[in-house]
Design a protein around this nucleic acid. Structure first.
Lengths: 209, 209
DNA sequence: CTTTACAGACCAACCAGTCGGTCTATAACT
DNA sequence: AGTTATAGACCGACTGGTTGGTCTGTAAAG
């Protein structure tokens, strides 16, 4: 990959992260990259392709990591820990990519969007699969509705991009540890009776055993 | 409030939700609202003001609801349940507002952004406050780092806008119940020893008592 | 008669993308 | 070795279409 192409990618990533895809013009990218319109369009077909490349770089990496973490462990409990850990760590490596990924995916051209959606669904399936497997095997609480629980897990992790900063109070590894703790606390079966005394009402899904 | 103004707001909300703020032109809004440029600019100073109004409507409502739920209950456990419930329910009432709120806030003009940020921080403080209070009083697990835990809670709820659909498998009330269950499971003190047997490593924050 | 509500033609700015052209490097030829 | 041919990398003035916003006009309301 050419030197200039990388520069354009890095520069535009920063700019998009700060001002959003539509808040940055090709001329700005070109100026900040120390090149020209010609240089830009020599390496990218369009501004939209640039957006796609950013999306693809990130989701491809996440998918690869999650797949690996999923394979090397056997029990659902070990798997979920490994996958969450690797997923959280990504926010340290790819934060600008992720901001663009979650903020600007609306603006992907249909052909590009389809490709990204496919990979994103694959990733979602890994999470869903682990939780499902855990419930089926009795490792995780069976009464939890799979879809809602899985989306809660995805949500809490995904949201990290909105607040995480590298020089913040907690390192990315520490954050991962906290998240794993939280997730295991609601996934693993425990003293439900004790908890229910504190609840305003008995949840609708508690009749499953 | 005038009839046309409401129409413009509703229409643009739908359009923004579907295509994003920059994917919709003023002409499109005007056409879909059955009015004209004159009609639009009679009610709004600019497209940016429209964006602000949408933001403000939503965050003002959330803040009011959370404040109310926070006041009528006394214990942190009851408070967090009430606040989460009211918060989750908002996603049923204001889903298009929320999509715009989380997707397009980057494009708010500085003056508008400041106002919105203020209210958003107020809301965040309510959540932080409840968890802090719960930890201080011994209702919630003291070992959990406040910031990370609170952001996890906010994240899992906020992410709902990405997947919730009114005609989905679970009602918004059911989703709220699941979320409250999950959150209480990791907030309330329980059998940590039992859980730790399943953990790949001992979390860094477990030495606090 | 004044004010408010809206219509729609019009405009200036902007922006993604184009296109003819230059510069450099390496290969091919003599 | 010296000269020429060719390809790829990059430049930047230019354009055609679009967009947010304005301005003048008009009809109804009070």
């Amino acid at each position: 990959m050419s030197r200039l192409r990388s520069t354009i990618l890095e520069t535009s990533l920063q700019l998009f992260d700060e001002h959003g895809f539509h808040g940055v013009t090709v001329n700005q990218i070109v100026a900040a990259s120390g090149t020209s319109k010609g240089g830009f369009y020599h390496h990218f077909q369009s501004k939209d392709e640039l957006l796609f490349v950013i999306h693809d770089t990130f989701i491809t990496y996440v998918l690869k990591e999650a797949g690996a973490a999923n394979v090397i462990h056997t029990s659902p409990t070990a798997k979920i820990q490994a996958v969450i850990h690797s997923f959280v760590k990504v926010f340290d490596l790819y934060k600008p990519h992720i901001s663009v990924f979650y903020q600007e995916s609306t603006y992907l051209k249909p052909a590009y969007e389809e490709k990204i959606k496919k990979k994103r669904d694959e990733f979602k399936d890994i999470i869903f699969g682990i939780i499902h497997e855990g419930q089926a095997g009795g490792d995780f609480r069976k009464e939890l509705p799979l879809e809602v629980t899985a989306m809660a897990v995805l949500g809490m992790v995904n949201w990290i991009y909105k607040w995480y900063q590298q020089d913040g109070r907690y390192s990315i590894d520490e954050i991962a540890e906290v998240y794993i703790d939280l997730i295991l606390h609601f996934l693993l079966p425990g003293s439900s009776e004790q908890l229910m005394r504190h609840m305003n009402k008995v949840p609708f899904f508690y009749d499953v055993k």
